[in-house]
């Protein structure tokens, strides 16, 4: 008799736990199913259609033809090339500058918090608004950048109108806008290093350069790794910067096309929705590969404490 009530109590608890657990999770599940899982499946379906009408949701020809179109589209190749430039130029440059600033901020000066507040400001402010500000700084006739360069005898550069220069304007803006986040993350990485290591080095009289290469850098490698991965992924998603800098166009003669800009353009600009879907699947696969590399390498290479 006693056993029986115990059992039914246990079942009751299980039912209650399940009911309340799902009840509290319900809003998350509903929103995620409608606005993440469903569109994910639908994007895959759209991407594999060869012809597709978005408004009637009718497609025909199931295969890889749309992927082939996107991958051979000069605009998409331009987008990949631009992403590559951002990854190999903007990412390392902003990482090095950010690390240098973080080291200075962490050197024990009194005004560190004050400077940190200034350096972090661009992270919270609208990329669109500040991008429009930059588009005026880059203005070829009266922009401050050309006027500043003019003091050193440099002829006015057509930053925003010359297809060859436009990507450099984007890269400069990208370096600037990426600094804030990297500085804060580097600084928190530096502050997590156990001061004991530095004390030991001080007692041994280790030269400063060696302290940096032998202690700081190895112990900071998880941070460097994390920032590299997030910055590379962000490089594929550059969009707002381009929109703001070039007034809603992907640069002169499409010279600043990016992967997300391509998706947006195919979707909204030219209503080739299945091509936008195919391009977004390619982006998703790239991000999966990068994340996979991150998971593999973070176990092997990175020097944890």
């Amino acid at each position: 008799m006693k056993n029986k009530t115990n059992l039914s109590n246990a079942t009751k608890t299980t039912i209650k736990q399940n009911f309340l657990g799902y009840l509290y999770l319900l809003p998350t599940l509903v929103i995620t199913l409608i606005f993440v899982v469903y569109p994910l499946i639908m994007s895959f379906r759209m991407g594999f259609y060869e012809r597709y009408n978005y408004y009637t949701d009718e497609g025909s020809g199931f295969g890889l033809a749309t992927f082939k179109f996107v991958l051979t589209d000069p605009n998409f190749q331009k987008a990949l090339m631009n992403t590559f430039l951002i990854v190999v130029i903007a990412v390392p440059v902003s990482m090095i500058i950010a690390l240098a600033i973080a080291l200075l901020l962490n050197s024990g000066i009194k005004a560190s918090k004050f400077f940190q507040a200034i350096y972090f400001l661009p992270y919270v402010t609208s990329v669109i608004a500040i991008g429009i500000v930059w588009s005026w700084l880059f203005h070829s006739d009266f922009g401050y950048i050309n006027q500043f360069l003019g003091m050193f005898g440099v002829d006015p550069i057509q930053w925003l109108n010359d297809p060859k220069m436009a990507i450099w304007a984007l890269i400069i803006f990208n370096i600037w806008s990426g600094l804030a986040f990297k500085i804060v993350i580097f600084l928190s990485g530096l502050q997590n290093i156990d001061p004991q290591y530095y004390k030991a080095a001080q007692i041994d009289g280790t030269p400063k350069w060696k302290v940096f290469t032998r202690i700081t850098l190895p112990l900071l490698s998880p941070t460097v790794f994390f920032l590299t991965i997030t910055s590379v992924i962000a490089s594929f998603k550059v969009y707002n910067e381009v929109f703001a800098l070039f007034g809603g166009k992907p640069g002169p003669a499409n010279s600043c096309m990016t992967v997300v800009y391509y998706i947006y353009d195919m979707f909204y600009g030219s209503s080739q929705v299945h091509k936008a879907a195919a391009a977004s699947i390619i982006l998703f696969i790239i991000i999966l590969i990068i994340t996979g590399i991150q998971m593999l390498l973070s176990k092997k290479l990175v020097h944890y404490k």
Partner: peptide
């Protein structure tokens, strides 16, 4: 399982979802 799947959705680029979400 649900928690792991939710975490996995963080890898999905939001730009991919807007295509269908606009329709929805």
């Amino acid at each position: 399982v649900i928690f792991t799947l939710l975490l996995a959705t963080m890898m999905v680029p939001g730009e991919m979802l807007i295509i269908q979400n606009y329709q929805t």
